[in-house]
């Protein structure tokens, strides 16, 4: 379920998986089997009527402490993904943006320029079609498409299955291209090391204030399509200021996936971050 927009999740389709299913207890990811931990609740039977009631009664009701986050199931899956990535020293980056920000173009250029020195893989999330995974495969890098159907975001459970199918190499880098949406993916931890937000200068410079949750959740903001700055009314300073208001620690890199301007800085960030993942 999506806590943000109410989209359904019954139509998820992961390449290579012929059935969709909901796991509650435990499941295995390839040879790396792991079970999911469950939060335990405690019974507090006060024997004198319900707590919060003013008068003790003879009612058989009792209080049950739940203390469970409504997103706890996703967060459990995410924690397991994160542990698995960490054990295999894989750097995972979750790329989030609105549709049309140039995510896939930026990613294909990044792959083309880094694939000689680094081992890369991609998970593509879209509601329909495997067009994006095809575009990535043309670069010669492993890619897996997840179609979310009615869903508006990827969740940690889907990523767990994607890990199985991709057979990722140790010490590699996994890019997850989330569904184009600045709202819902902010709430769903996939187990990634960092969320990277991509915002193009053909969008409004006040987007960080309009969609604060996403810019709050991201560690890096790539300001894309800077080659178009002379033609659009976009104030880079203002946008950066807004982004830092919702997230004082966010790093901002200006790039153009078309001309290649600024891409070196982005690659340096990836390599520096990977060095941390390798420790």
């Amino acid at each position: 379920m999506c806590t943000v927009c109410g989209c359904g999740e019954g139509e998820t389709r992961i390449e290579g998986h012929t059935h969709s299913h909901e796991h509650v207890k435990s499941h295995e990811h390839g040879s790396n089997s792991h079970s999911h931990e469950h939060q335990h609740s405690h019974n507090h039977d006060y024997g004198q009527g319900p707590a919060h009631a003013h008068a003790p009664g003879l009612s058989q009701s009792r209080m049950v402490q739940i203390e469970t986050d409504i997103l706890s199931k996703n967060n459990e899956y995410a924690a397991h993904n994160r542990r698995w990535f960490s054990e295999h020293k894989i750097l995972t980056l979750n790329l989030v943006s609105s549709p049309g920000s140039g995510k896939t173009s930026l990613l294909t250029r990044t792959i083309d320029e880094l694939k000689k020195e680094l081992t890369l893989a991609v998970v593509e999330g879209d509601q329909q079609t495997d067009n994006d995974a095809q575009r990535i495969r043309e670069t010669g890098v492993k890619a897996l498409q997840i179609n979310t159907g009615k869903g508006c975001h990827l969740d940690a459970h889907m990523i767990g299955h994607a890990i199985d199918s991709l057979a990722l190499e140790d010490k590699s880098i996994l890019f997850i291209e989330n569904v184009g949406n600045l709202v819902c993916p902010a709430a769903f931890d996939l187990g990634e090391a960092h969320k990277v937000a991509i915002l193009s200068v053909t969008e409004g410079d006040d987007k960080p204030l309009k969609y604060p949750d996403m810019f709050h959740a991201a560690d890096l903001l790539l300001l894309n399509k800077t080659d178009l700055l002379p033609y659009v009314d976009f104030d880079v300073e203002k946008c950066s200021d807004y982004a830092r208001r919702v997230n004082p620690g966010i790093k901002i890199i200006q790039v153009s996936a078309t001309t290649g301007e600024g891409m070196d800085t982005w690659y340096q960030w990836i390599k520096a971050t990977q060095n941390l993942a390798l420790i």
């Binding site: 009612s59 058989q60 209080m63 739940i66 203390e67 986050d69 997103l71 004082p248």
Partner: peptide
């Protein structure tokens, strides 16, 4: 200033139930 780190207000939890 805007040098703020959110420390509360993101919660969304089921705290407790009264059941029988």
């Amino acid at each position: 200033g805007y040098q703020l780190q959110i420390t509360g207000g993101e919660e969304m939890r089921v705290k407790e139930l009264e059941v029988e």
